[in-house]
């Protein structure tokens, strides 16, 4: 074998929300099938920069590591994506890791995506049930409808669609494609549809669907291939009808 291959990884470090960011470079021994998470574990085991300076392990979020939990989103070589499915052999080197920029920074690559969950509350993203008691089966649903709903409900709340959206930034409070998609999902469900009006009112509220200007980066960035622009246009139609009908008849 030739001499061991190495991987260069540059990480944008920031000790805390108030600190100034700085870049650190790490040199990592290459092995087959490595992903970005494996690099970060290596750095934790040997937190020394490529110029031999001792530093601290890089903080990052991760859980399932199979792209179903949404935790490990970060900006890799300029693109917002999940770190677990970012394979080293497919990335240009040096690999540049940055935290997502549209969420409050906690430390290093960790950001606080709580606003997505809060917006899901404000937009009433659930099927309101009467209780957990044994009161019989749910409504029947056509298989075609289930297939559409399933595709929408695979959203992992990773936040990539917010990160790449030009309309999500410090000037506006757009809830982002993920939440609009949730509104469509729950309006589709027979029980959820009984409360569609409340959701459609909410989605016309502060940071609502009116903020979307169709740059459509969301649908490209979605790791789960959710038809986000379809959801967006569908909710646009529903919200508009709801508002016009509400204005005319209430």
């Amino acid at each position: 074998m030739a001499e061991a291959k190495t991987i260069l990884v540059r990480v944008k470090r920031q000790a805390g929300p108030q600190d100034t960011p700085q870049w650190e470079e790490f040199s990592i021994r290459w092995r087959p099938n490595m992903n970005v998470i494996a690099c970060l574990i290596d750095i934790a085991e040997n937190p020394v920069t490529s110029d031999g300076r001792k530093t601290t392990p890089v903080s990052y979020e991760a859980n399932c590591l199979e792209e179903v939990c949404g935790a490990c989103a970060m900006v890799i070589n300029g693109h917002s994506r999940q770190a677990c499915s970012a394979l080293v052999d497919h990335l240009e080197q040096p690999i540049r890791l940055e935290p997502m920029s549209k969420f409050p920074l906690v430390r290093d690559l960790v950001v606080d995506r709580q606003r997505m969950f809060n917006d899901a509350k404000r937009m009433r993203c659930w099927v309101p049930i009467d209780g957990t008691y044994a009161i019989g089966p749910g409504p029947r649903i056509a298989p075609e409808r289930q297939e559409v709903a399933y595709a929408l409900s695979r959203c992992i709340f990773c936040g990539n669609c917010l990160e790449v959206c030009p309309k999500v930034n410090e000037h506006g409070d757009f809830v982002g494609a993920a939440i609009v998609n949730q509104v469509r999902l729950f309006n589709m469900h027979p029980t959820g549809a009984m409360h569609a009006h409340e959701r459609l009112r909410a989605v016309r509220g502060p940071g609502g669907i009116q903020e979307c200007d169709n740059a459509q980066n969301c649908v490209k960035a979605c790791p789960k291939g959710i038809p986000l622009t379809e959801s967006n246009n569908d909710v646009n139609r529903q919200a508009l009808l709801d508002s016009i009908l509400g204005w005319m008849f209430h």
């Binding site: 099927v127 749910g138 649903i141 056509a142």
Partner: peptide, 12 residues
């Protein structure tokens, strides 16, 4: 049944 009522997208 409960999960179904909660809106789980079970195959049909």
């Amino acid at each position: 049944d409960l999960l179904d009522r909660m809106g789980v997208t079970f195959n049909r």
